[in-house]
Amino acid sequence: MNPLINMDTRATSTRFTSALGLATLIGLGWLAVFGLFLSPNDRVQKTGVRILYIHVPSAWLAYLAFVVTGLASAGYLWKRTRSLTLDRIAGASAEVGVLFMGITLVSGSLWGKISWGTYWTWDSRLTTTAFLFVTYIGYLAVRDLGGSHEQRARRSGVLALLALVEVPLVHFSVRWWRPLHQQESVAKGKLSDLMLFTLFVGLVSFTLLYVWLVMHRQRVAALDDMVDDGGLDRALADRRSEGMP
C-alpha cells in the first residue's frame, strides 16, 4: 500500500524534538524572568536596555542560520555528500533566519530610537543586515520557483554560496561609503555580570529554539517533497477509489 495515503497521521515530532522543545520553552521562560525582572536597569538607557536580550540573540540566531544555509548548500553541491536532506536543511535554516533577521531589524530600530534617537542610521552593520534580509527573501523565492527537487537544490545551493560572496562585498563597500559605526558594548565590558548572564540565557535558549524549528521545518519539507513525488499516484488512487462502493 502507498504509504502516502496515510501520511496525514504522521507527525514531525520525535522524542528528541519533544525534549528539545521542552528545554527551549524552559529556556525562554528563564529569559523572560531574567530579562524582564531580575536584570538591572541601565544607567543611561534605563529599562530600554532590555531589548538587548531579544535583539542580540535573534541577530545571533539569524547569522547562525545563514551560515548553516551556506554550509548545507556547499554540502549539497559537493558530490560526495550530496543529499536532498542537506538542501532541505538549507531551506529550513534560511526560513528561520529570515524570520529572526526581521525580528532583529525591528527590535534594533526600536532600540535605536530609544538609545540613539533615530530608527535607522546608515551604519555598515545595519545596512549589511538589511541587505542580508532582502537577499535571503530572494533565496526563498528562488526555492519556490518550481522544477524538480534536484533543480531546486542546485539553483538555491549556488545562490546561497553567491550570497556568502555578496555579503562581505556589501559590508565593506558600505563601511567605506559611510565610515561611522557604534562600538560593541559587550567587548568594552559595559554590561554588568547579571546582564551578561541574561544575555547568555538568551543566546542558549534561542539556539535551542533554532535547532527545534529547523528540525521540524526540515521534516515538513521532506513530507512536502514526498507529496510532490507521489502526487500523481495518489491522485490516481483517490480517483479509483471514488467509484467503489
Binding site: V134, I137, V142, L159, L162, V170, S173, V174
Partner: peptide, 15 residues
C-alpha cells in the same frame, strides 16, 4: 524575481 535578486547584489557597484 529578477530585480529582487539582482539589486542587492549590485549595490556595491552603485556605491
Amino acid at each position: 524575481l529578477l530585480p529582487l535578486l539582482m539589486l542587492p547584489v549590485v549595490a556595491p557597484v552603485l556605491i
